[in-house]
Design a protein around this nucleic acid. Structure first.
Lengths: 340, 340
DNA sequence: CTGAAAGCGCTTACAG
DNA sequence: CTGAAAGCGCTTACAG
């Protein structure tokens, strides 16, 4: 049996399509007897409204795209959880778009060859530059997440990465570290994320009067614990010595912890280590990881606020919002008495 | 300026809508000169086809729902990565649906109150029973993933959980463990996943002639490392002793490793431990985790095959497919000389 | 409170 | 190889 349409329900109930539509959408001004009659027809026909028809008529799909490189990276999966939950509360569903951090896929996010599928886009670029983002066609609202340089025309939410990197770096110095390395940026083609975190790291070193030494920068081949562990092992083999390690992200820190343990180097006795993101695993490493915790709920909430405003027609210059972060202290770089 | 429609392009190019549609969809039998004329109009108007209009006309949206409890659980995020990548190769996009493992949300997956949004559904139930799944309305194709009991009418893909649990249990016995505990099932309302893994665990114990003792079952409050760690710590405090530990999943195993280390119990010297899923973190615990690795690509690929067949109209009884798994040996329960 | 009709933006037999 | 027209399943002014 073919699926029932609104029209079928109207015929069975003996009313117009408009009235059925009113009942389906919960419009209040329908007389109880009409409503009951329509409801009976709906049940009888097992009618379910077709969302595509509705979307074409209203111009809205209730879909939001969430785009970033790779959902299997814990930070993104935790972000996706948060966005998805908050989006549902606002009546939206989330379409997953993975770019693998490729230029081609990131370009496709801001200038898709199709229209009308999603009402808005939440996008964390990995490598796409501000100017290319600015050139996007602008017919679907976009809010940018994360560290990428955002064009003036586009909304953007992030935490203050430079401040956070400075905080963890000075914390390591406060613990007595004098040779503080940085782990996990790209070997070439620095991502915006690495760029701002390195900037904060440098500021922290300078504030503490510690030398800034490019020999202390340990790049990694990929955003993964495996690449980071390899990089640390290789650096140690080449004779690099350090007593503090600021990691670009928790994945890198987890790899570093493993590589240091394998080399017989103790954390935090010999080297103090910080991560970034406070992913779930960060409390289960041994020792636990001191790390930067962004306020994910605020980040997702603020981004959704902005996106909904754009969807509703807001059409002024891009808003650039900062949300809070905190440093969570665990065994890899314990809190000082003055800290919490 | 309002967005251009197919009709606008047709007018500018001086051809019919049908011809524009042919060009847009890459239909071959269009004369080069007509194609060029149409392409010029498309570029001039910055025309992009509206997917909602197309969907309404074709009855397809190119969207697949991927439903499970929580995307921030590493197994699910790794599964989502795999499904999303394979789906794109087949021309589909993925809509994320989180159920939080609640009955209400799981029911909504199999009997949504709307239709027409997705062409098919990939669903890993956490608690929904076979009979409720069987009652689903059947107007959108569904393929079930994971351990839930599937109704005869519905396609289903999983690994042989009983066999895998038996394998890891006998492996621990082969390493000399005689008091092998199980960690991570629900305190009440056993999930299908826990049920089959416990069954294999019991079979393994019996095959080895080891006593089956309910005192060795350590339930956990949630699917998380934190709950598992708490449970192990509490069990140890109550005097439970064991020399082998089969964990329901890697998250539980990671929590166990932490709790055991905190209690001064060495792995693998005092207790040998196995996990399940081989999530990315499983190679970065200390020691690394011996664990069951399902063939995710085969799982996702087979499920998508089945779903595409259903979408194409296949309408027979449910197929129940098993895909491969392997046991990956790492430090927490090293391979025996005879194994690999 | 309810109805008849147009319209959202496409695709697709059917003709030619 | 191309065109005119109907139809996909809804919503929404506009009347009454």
């Amino acid at each position: 049996m073919a699926r029932a349409r609104l029209q079928d329900v109207a015929e069975v109930a003996g009313v117009s399509m408009k009235t059925v539509s009113n009942v389906v959408r919960g419009y209040v001004h329908v007389s109880p007897s009409t409503r009951a009659k329509v409801q009976r027809a709906i049940d009888e026909l097992a009618y379910r409204p077709n969302e595509t028809g509705r979307s074409l008529a209203t111009g809205r799909t209730g879909l939001l795209a969430l785009a970033f490189s790779d959902i299997s990276i814990p930070y993104y999966s935790e972000l996706a959880r948060c966005v998805s939950t908050l989006a549902r509360d606002r009546g939206y569903r989330v379409l997953l778009e993975q770019t693998d951090g490729t230029l081609e896929a990131e370009r496709a996010i801001v200038s898709t060859s199709e229209a009308g599928l999603v009402d808005g886009v939440l996008f964390q670029p990995s490598i796409l530059g501000s100017s290319e983002i600015a050139r996007h066609r602008g017919d679907v609202p976009v809010v940018l997440l994360g560290e990428a340089q955002a064009p003036l025309s586009v909304d953007h939410v992030m935490i203050d990465n430079v401040a956070a990197a400075r905080r963890v770096t000075t914390h390591l110095a406060g613990l007595g570290a004098t040779r503080i390395a940085f782990l996990g940026h790209e070997r070439s083609g620095l991502s915006p994320t690495s760029r701002v975190r390195l900037a904060g790291y440098q500021e922290g070193l300078e504030a503490e009067g510690l030398p800034v030494d490019t020999g202390l920068l340990i790049p990694s081949g990929a955003v993964s614990s495996a690449s980071a562990a390899e990089a640390v092992t290789a650096a140690l083999a080449e004779g690099l010595r350090f007593d503090g390690l600021v990691c670009r992200d928790d994945l890198a820190a987890i790899g570093a912890l493993r590589a240091l343990a394998d080399a017989g180097i103790r954390v935090p006795e010999d080297v103090v280590v910080t991560g970034w993101d406070d992913v779930a695993m960060a409390s289960f490493t041994q020792p636990g990881l001191t790390t930067v915790r962004p306020d994910l709920a605020a980040l997702a909430g603020r981004a959704l606020d902005m996106l909904e405003e754009r969807i509703a027609g807001f059409d002024e210059l891009g808003r650039h919002a900062l949300v809070d972060f905190e440093v969570v202290y665990r065994g890899s770089a314990p809190a000082l008495p003055t800290e919490d």
